[in-house]
């Protein structure tokens, strides 16, 4: 874990400005009426205001952040960045925040994850703005902020949407070149591709059988292609809507455990299964150059 020794910036919060105004008002009131109680109250308020700057600064000192981490996400959602915070002393650090979230570094904790959510709208590489760690603890009168390391770019997949059903295998262009050798025959079942019916065997045995290539899997391979997406005339950007539909199909296939391949324009991803293939597919969809 790399140590982050970035400079800390101390600034007044709006509440701190309000507090100061109240202090001044109390001082004026005390002076005007020669009232010691109000004067003491004003001194106390001002003392707390001064002390708050020290406490807030001290709360932030000793807090180190590791490089940010992020996992790819879908467009229209949020990118979940996370950073590991550590304390290089034995003190407790409270309400160390970034964005809307904050964490406590309680005495002795090895590290604490701080999560930040950044909304993303478009697919591709998303480069976020620099983020600051900050703390206003304990009184919210001062804000100490500290620049963290640059946030890494986040890969944003196309937003999965589209209501078109998964293409049916026989309606899709199964690529015979990618098929393996004949591995056997089996009895015909309703819905089997008629091209694979072993007509010769039927002539011999009078039973309807189908040939199997490259094992049983060859039947379940889907080729998801932008050509297989039904185009709607009224939709403006065909490419993006195709990609969104393809993303939906990829997710559905992955969830259903169906082997699938991907072909977009001239680019092709060989069929496969599993998380790796799923990620590669989504990455391919995310990084399709805009045409």
């Amino acid at each position: 874990m790399s140590r982050n020794k970035a400079r800390r910036h101390l600034a007044l919060t709006p509440a701190g400005v309000g507090w100061l105004i109240v202090c001044v008002a109390a001082f004026v009131l005390a002076t005007n009426y020669n009232n010691n109680i109000i004067f003491m109250f004003a001194c106390l308020l001002f003392g707390v205001w001064l002390l708050a700057s020290l406490l807030t600064y001290r709360n932030m000192s000793g807090v180190n952040s590791a490089p940010w981490q992020v996992t790819p996400c879908f467009a229209g959602g949020v990118a979940h960045y996370q950073v590991s915070l550590t304390s290089d002393d034995q003190r407790e650090h409270f309400e160390i925040g970034c964005g809307q979230h904050s964490v406590d570094l309680i005495n002795g904790v090895e590290h604490q994850w701080l999560h930040v959510e950044v909304p993303v709208s478009a697919r591709g590489w998303f480069v976020p703005n620099q983020k600051m760690l900050f703390s206003t603890w304990p009184f919210g009168l001062w804000k100490v902020s500290k620049v963290t390391e640059d946030l890494p770019a986040c890969l944003v997949y196309p937003e999965p949407c589209g209501s078109q059903p998964l293409p049916v295998v026989n309606q899709l262009s199964n690529d015979p070149q990618d098929m393996d050798e004949l591995s056997g025959v089996r009895a015909y079942q309703s819905g089997d591709n008629l091209r694979r019916v072993d007509w010769k065997a039927m002539a011999r045995t009078e039973q309807l059988t189908v040939k199997e290539f490259g094992g049983d899997e060859s039947e379940k391979i889907l080729w998801l292609s932008d050509n297989s997406v039904v185009k709607h005339v009224d939709k403006g950007d065909h490419q993006e809507s195709d990609l969104r539909q393809l993303t939906r199909w990829v997710i559905d296939c992955h969830n259903a455990g169906v082997q699938y391949g991907l072909r977009i324009g001239n680019e092709k991803l060989t069929p496969g299964l599993g998380v790796g293939h799923y990620n590669n597919s989504l990455q391919m969809l995310a990084l399709v150059s805009r045409g």
């Binding site: 005007n32 009426y33 004067f39 003491m40 001194c43 003392g47 002390l51 406490l55 304990p138």
Partner: peptide, 25 residues
């Protein structure tokens, strides 16, 4: 504890800050 810690600040200001005789009208 923070209130106690802020008391020395308040005491210094209370006893040492020059008193301006009012009123301010």
């Amino acid at each position: 504890s923070y209130l106690c810690i802020s008391l020395p600040f308040a005491a210094v200001l209370f006893f040492m800050l020059p008193r301006i005789p009012g009123p301010l009208w």
